[in-house]
């Protein structure tokens, strides 16, 4: 299972990086969304996918899934949500001010060197 999940995480990363390298601002924002999904699966995979019960103490359950990666991912999900919301609004404002979403046009000029 880890083999499969590692490949899935890798492919999500591939898709995310491909989007981030494109010229369109909106694609970059979408790419960061995919990137965080890939990263969460990556953490989960590295920790191992074993365990037959969720990490909640309940009668009879002994073989818990590893709780630490889950805690880390939970934190990461919330933070990536905050960041996604932020860059989404940033993209909106950038577009509103510069009236373009072409990243290759968004660069400094010589006066700002």
């Amino acid at each position: 299972m880890e083999l499969l999940m590692a490949i899935v995480a890798g492919l999500l990363f591939t898709a995310a990086i491909y989007l981030i390298l494109s010229r369109s601002l909106i694609k970059v924002v979408l790419g960061t969304g995919l990137l965080s999904h890939g990263a969460h699966l990556f953490i989960l995979t590295m920790g191992g996918l074993g365990g037959s019960a969720p990490p909640v103490l309940a009668d009879g359950a002994g073989d818990f899934a590893d709780p630490l990666p889950q805690a880390l991912i939970l934190t990461a999900i919330v933070i990536s949500f905050g960041v996604t919301a932020f860059i989404l609004v940033l993209a909106y404002r950038t577009y509103a001010v510069h009236e373009t979403d072409d990243l290759s046009l968004m660069k400094g000029n010589d006066e700002h060197d």
Partner: peptide
């Protein structure tokens, strides 16, 4: 309020470079 999805004249060469780099990153992650 978001801009429409455009490619902004991205060439095949650009896309190929992007794909290679993205693939390399994905491979290293795996």
């Amino acid at each position: 309020h978001l801009p429409a999805m455009k490619t902004h004249g991205e060439t095949k060469g650009n896309k190929l470079v992007n794909a290679i780099i993205a693939g390399a990153v994905g491979l290293s992650v795996t």
